[in-house]
Amino acid sequence: MTSTDTISIAGTDYSSRLLVGTGKYKDLDETRSAIETSGAQIVTVAIRRTNIGQNQDEPNLLEVISPDKYTILPNTAGCYDTESAVRTCRLARELLDGHDLVKLEVLGDKKTLFPDVPQTLDAAQQLIDDNFKVMVYTSDDPIMAKRFEEMGCVAVMPLAAPIGSGLGIRNPYNIRTIVENANVPILVDAGVGTASDAAIAMELGCDGVLMNTAIAEAKNPVLMASAMKKAIEAGREAYLAGRMPRRAYASASSPIGGHFF
């Protein structure tokens, strides 16, 4: 991989195309090890109430995943309406000293965690009007992906399968169509289960992949983080290399002539 193959998000170039979450880890040591091993430079966090008077001796997440070292991407996970999503982003910006890059998700249903796209559109517009840089989680609908791009989202992040499902790339044709139409980075966000899923997303031409559960719920999260790093790089290189055409029948690899038998 050449050092010039970077992904540019909101004007910043990143050499890693793997973005990772910080949820579901056993403890902060495991979080730190897995994220370091993944090579990720953009790391998502959630915003929640502080436990007042409890666990004050425990290290804070931002001491382990330092904003000096990583681009922190606060999310709006758990928000089911525009208002709470926008409110969460504003709190995150204050919390992170004016940092304005956010991952917007407005969920529509607890069972599937599929996005509520109309409310996501509404929230994205409010956030863009308030000078946020919005990376938006959405469905794998090419028309909606284009709409988010046109309104000014800095990245569009279609799901590959439901959040935390590990079902892999369920609709590669839609993902490819979204990528073909796009003028902003397209990242698969949600649904990756193992390294081959990440490689497939990259081979489809995605600019990156955001994942959490696939690493955190692996039996060995740190080893899976390593696997995902390689899969993202391998998939990217394969995409850039351009794969051979598919054929219905065999094509011999050894010369057909020159037989001595």
Binding site: I47, R49, L91, I163, N212
Partner: peptide, 10 residues
């Protein structure tokens, strides 16, 4: 009054 912080999430 709400006091919030960053915690693990994806």
């Amino acid at each position: 009054i709400e006091i919030v912080q960053a915690i693990g999430g994806g």
